[in-house]
């Protein structure tokens, strides 16, 4: 799994609430049997016309905005459990997603792929959107070790929560299977006792 420790980057702002996984990656693109290549269809129907021409008003098609951090409105990733949503975001070059609220399954899927979901307060989210409105190149610093996210220009900072186990997985690049496989004897004992 991809490691995550610290990054400083400009952001791609998507100030829409309840962005569901069907918007992130529509079902018709779920027919691939590998994990790669979903990035080109990330936000497909918001990003492209039917004839594959980029929609000029979508933020990912605006060269003013770029970066490894996607910032979105609350309840990001609701709906389907498709892990393809996390794969698509990562494949498109993002390493972290910031929102004031994440749907559970999406959050788990992101963590299992080294894509860091950062939940901030509504107020801090509004500050980030404001900073980017004023200066599209405004950068954020994300520090996983210290669990902080900082708006570089203003110095405004907020801490975020993360399960300590998942944090160490991200920092070290471990996944859950490695962890559970080490407990196989316990699992067999559990089955015996059942």
């Amino acid at each position: 799994m991809k490691k995550f420790t610290k990054l400083t980057s400009a952001v791609v702002p998507l100030n829409i609430e309840n962005i569901d996984t069907d918007q992130i990656i529509p079902a018709r693109f779920l027919k691939a049997t590998t994990r790669e290549g979903f990035g080109e269809n990330l936000f497909r129907d918001w990003r492209y016309e039917n004839d594959n021409q980029p929609k000029a008003d979508f933020v990912m098609n605006n060269p003013t905005y770029s970066g490894q951090v996607l910032v979105a409105g609350k309840n990001f990733g609701c709906g389907s459990s498709r892990e393809h949503a996390a794969w698509a975001i990562q494949d498109a070059g993002f390493d972290a997603v910031i929102s004031s609220f994440f749907a559970d399954i999406f959050k788990g899927n992101a963590l299992n792929n080294g894509l860091l979901p950062i939940q901030v307060s509504d107020e801090f989210l509004a500050q980030i959107f404001n900073a980017v409105d004023n200066n599209p190149k405004s950068a954020l610093e994300v520090d996983l070790e210290n669990q902080t996210v900082t708006i570089v220009e203003t110095g405004a900072q907020e801490s975020f929560e993360i399960n300590p186990y998942k944090k160490s997985c991200l920092i070290n690049g471990y996944d859950d299977i490695d962890f559970i496989l080490a407990q196989k004897e316990l699992i067999a004992e559990f089955e015996q006792a059942k």
């Binding site: 459990s81 393809h84 996390a86 788990g108 899927n109 299992n112 859950d176 299977i177 496989l181 196989k184």
Partner: peptide
């Protein structure tokens, strides 16, 4: 409950899931 594909692999491999 529903799970992602990495977790499908976990359950295949161990019949268990890490869950809070």
């Amino acid at each position: 409950f529903g799970i992602g594909t990495s977790q499908v692999e976990q359950v295949f491999a161990t019949q268990c899931l890490l869950q809070s």
